[in-house]
């Protein structure tokens, strides 16, 4: 299962189009809170998390999942500067980062 947590509806929808167009199973959440309340990730899930979520940030969400012992594959997406991204993902085990706007094919990057 591919889990998208992104507050910008267009970006979420476009990402969903890309993944589901390739026949992959997708669920979309608009905030970290919404996701935590309604689902818990399985180890073979892939989470695509926007770092700049309002409320609980993407970084906090990933930390929260790590603490809870859940270990899905995590891909962080962000439009911020590399310095900000480094600060926001500090201490996170291994997170792949995709920067907005995309410079390459994201489907390949996500499924790789």
């Amino acid at each position: 299962m591919y889990i998208i947590v992104e507050d910008d509806p267009s970006v979420a929808d476009a990402l969903e189009s890309l993944l589901s167009g390739a026949g992959l199973p997708v669920r979309v959440f608009a905030s970290a809170e919404e996701f935590i309340h309604s689902a818990s990730p399985a180890p073979d899930d892939t989470m695509i998390v926007d770092l700049g979520l309002p409320g609980m940030s993407g970084g906090e969400l990933v930390r929260h999942l790590e603490k809870a012992g859940a270990t899905p594959k995590v891909i962080a997406i962000s439009g911020k500067s590399s310095r900000t991204i480094a600060r926001e993902t500090e201490g996170l085990a291994d997170v792949k980062i995709l920067r907005k706007p995309p410079a390459a094919d994201w489907l390949e990057a996500i499924t790789a």
């Binding site: 970006v11 476009a14 990402l15 189009s17 439009g79 706007p101 995309p102 094919d105």
Partner: peptide, 9 residues
């Protein structure tokens, strides 16, 4: 981002 992803799709 949305634009590029739609086009990729």
């Amino acid at each position: 981002t949305a634009l590029l992803l739609y086009l990729q799709a």
